[in-house]
Design a binder for these strands. Structure first.
Lengths: 299, 299
DNA sequence: TAACCGTTTTGCAAAAATGCACATGGCAGG
DNA sequence: CCTGCCATGTGCATTTTTGCAAAACGGTTA
């Protein structure tokens, strides 16, 4: 039996289709198709059933998936043990994060990590909150939460404070009574939604957004005030704080990964790198008033 | 990482050389050499140290061997689970037995098994008693012993009785006082050696042999008397029993295999086949006087 | 029903791995 | 000291595997 066939099958079992398995493996779908077929022939047992909607694993397929998972762990831990001995770390590393963070604050950190470890292929993917790390859709997830899934392990990188922001002009106008207080309906995540409902109980909005980048843009347009993570609000010169950040609106920023990856050198390196980088920018995340406009704070 | 590389490395680690690993894998040694080198490059860690006398596994190599072993078991047990569902059993099966048995009594059994399961590639190898089944040098071993290694599992197929034989003429001559009693020094195995020493304490021999087929030939030449398994002595019309078989000279015939193979269909099939075959020939093995010359017994 | 989407399969050319033959190098025995 | 043997490494031809493009399939939607 070709042991590699198990590896390919595992990808299929996880991804749910030949094409996506192929993409993940970095080969052609035709290759996947042919090898799975060959494997089925060799075993004289079907592994996947081509059903109407998508497909399902047969009983044998499930068995093989389990076995292949264990094999993967076996090799992973071996690689972890050996990897520690070699100087330069190589391999691929797939990191997933929420869009607004990955494309803004985090990107420089990613860039520096990549530069420091040229042999590691770093691939960043944005995902809407739910990545099944147990299915190895990514190696590492960076998430904002206060209760990380306990099947995963990782580190609390920092605290993310959120505050209520509005455009500088709009905030001034409201505070001087020249404009009415309006709130933007921020539906980007469960937390922001709840906070908004609490802070603005009438729950009337003229404008709704479901993504943080949209919130940012809407606030800048002076469409109202709304919750925004401080690292975004404070770094935009067009915005001002309408309310100061409060403890209850703090979220943890977690770097999470699967237990089986805990001994993999490149995962550990990435974790340490992120810890170092974020430590330096702690003030920004935790909502300490930025240096660029300290006047309001000191006055 | 290519999972197949682990499979190839495992063969190397077990066999102790690239060439024999290649033979076992059914590929060219150059392939083995190239793949091991590629693997070492990928891991950036040497796996085997090319020493003066042969070679040794590095620490990393030992680790990988362990991991690969576990992976093999994983796939083996999967194959076992799935194999049960399919109708025709396929795969390779390597059986080892002592030369004198494999080439005589056992061969017809092997032949019938092979005919009954054409998809199983049966390879029979003679080995001098010590096969390291734990290193998978063979899948199944057939051995004469009274205390099988407890790391292995298997079945006691039958009892092998041994008796003292000589050529018909020579036996008659000794019994009528026309010839002196001479014993052949049978050094084929520990047991026969000890029994001979016991039965012929003067331990003087004019002729020594270290293999059962030689014993047989020597006895037929009338060079003396000596111990021989009944299944050999009784089926040779030129020989006669000089002493009857005794309980203390009985050995078990064991069919042994590694624990990990217990769920493999083809192993189970082989075991059942051999049990059936040998049950039918029980009388022969156990030393019940053969039908062909009952006269001496009944008279 | 037809057209479209995504997925899988198939045919053919390119790329990669393998086998083969030979060269090399260490070790044991004459 | 040489010679033969065994194990490993290398260059080239062949086989096998893979990638690519296009076709077939299945299901959904207009």
């Amino acid at each position: 039996m070709q042991w590699d066939d198990a590896r390919i099958f595992l990808a299929v079992a996880r991804e749910g289709s030949f094409s996506s398995a192929a993409k993940r493996l970095g080969v052609q779908h035709s290759t996947v198709s042919r090898r799975i077929r060959a494997l089925e022939n060799k075993l004289a047992a079907p592994l996947v059933e081509r059903k109407a909607s998508g497909y399902v694993l047969t009983e044998a397929g499930e068995e093989l998936k389990q076995s292949a998972c264990r094999i993967e762990n076996e090799l992973l831990s071996f690689e972890g043990a050996v990897g520690g001995q070699t100087d330069e770390v190589a391999g691929e590393l797939r990191v997933t994060a929420i869009a607004n963070m990955a494309s803004s604050v985090l990107m420089p950190y990613f860039a520096r990590f990549s530069a420091a470890h040229p042999k590691i292929e770093l691939s960043v993917q944005v995902t809407n909150n739910s990545v099944r790390l147990s299915e190895r859709e990514a190696d590492i997830a960076i998430r904002q939460t206060n209760k990380p899934q306990d099947t995963l392990i990782g580190t609390r990188l920092t605290t993310i404070a959120s505050a209520v922001y509005g455009s500088r002009d709009y905030c001034a106008a409201v505070k001087s009574g020249q404009a009415a207080e309006k709130w933007i309906g921020v539906d980007c995540c469960e937390n922001h939604r709840n906070w908004t409902r609490q802070a603005w109980p009438q729950a009337e909005h003229e404008f709704y957004v479901d993504e943080t980048s949209l919130t940012l843009a809407a606030l800048k347009e002076g469409l109202g005030v709304g919750f925004l993570p401080c690292f975004l609000g404070d770094s935009d010169p067009g915005l001002a704080r309408f309310h100061e950040p409060e403890k209850q609106h703090e979220l943890g920023l977690w770097l999470l990964y699967h237990r089986d990856l805990r001994n993999i050198k490149r995962v550990a390196l990435f974790r340490e790198h992120m810890q170092r980088e974020i430590k330096q920018a702690a003030a920004l995340f935790e909502g300490a008033m930025p240096i660029s406009h300290p006047a309001g704070q000191l006055a």
